[in-house]
């Protein structure tokens, strides 16, 4: 039995130090994904504890097919999305896809530049942020995202493009500091 297996076994038995060891080792990344998905520190703090309780509750079902961190990460994502649904943070979010609000958003973005991608992501709509975080940050496929959010993969892709276009504007000074961006208006116009 390896050290990790021993700690997991002890954690399943309710051993405090083993549970604490798992939490201590994995909480930086688990807490980070919860924070990114929530985009709100206070809400994220409320959800993170629920996430950890859920992880430990599910521990007897962990069979070691994946690394513990990967397995726990999946639970964290699912639990956070469920919690966000409950607080209606992403309710009707798919409607946003057809919402022709791009021009309005562009006006409100003008002059605002984010200092980091983390800050920029907080400016996204809940739906766009969720899809962007899951796809570009956490590495989920559109099919996986669609399954978790109950949408189509096309809807996921649309939200992702919308998110990237907005982030590109908000982070223009970071990713394109030598040539001002055109506020996302790059269309199929003449060169």
């Amino acid at each position: 039995m390896t050290a990790d297996q021993l700690i997991l076994k002890r954690a399943r038995d309710g051993d405090e130090e083993a549970l604490r060891s798992l939490w201590s080792q994995h909480s930086p990344h688990i807490d980070a994904v919860v924070r990114r998905l929530c985009g709100d520190a206070e809400l994220a703090a409320d959800i993170a504890q629920e996430v950890w309780i859920q992880i430990f509750r599910a521990l007897p079902g962990y069979r070691g097919e994946a690394q513990f961190g990967t397995w726990a990460h999946r639970i964290a994502v699912n639990r956070t999305l469920n919690a966000l649904r409950k607080v209606r943070r992403i309710e009707k979010w798919e409607v946003d896809i057809d919402d022709d609000s791009a021009a309005t958003e562009m006006d409100s973005d003008r002059g605002f530049l984010a200092e980091s991608i983390d800050e920029a992501m907080r400016q996204l709509s809940p739906g766009a942020r969720t899809v962007f975080v899951l796809h570009d940050v956490e590495g989920y496929t559109h099919e996986e995202i669609a399954e978790r959010l109950g949408i189509t993969s096309g809807g996921s892709k649309s939200q992702l493009f919308k998110a990237r276009a907005k982030l590109r504007r908000l982070l223009a000074h970071v990713i394109d500091d030598t040539w001002p961006a055109r506020n996302g208006s790059h269309a199929a116009s003449a060169c």
Binding site: D31, A48, D118, E138, L171, D176
Partner: peptide, 18 residues
């Protein structure tokens, strides 16, 4: 560049929530 920023974000951690 945005994609690279996003990938790097996946490895970052912040202040603990719990």
């Amino acid at each position: 560049a945005l994609r690279e920023l996003a990938s790097a974000e996946g490895a970052s951690v912040g202040a603990p929530l719990t």
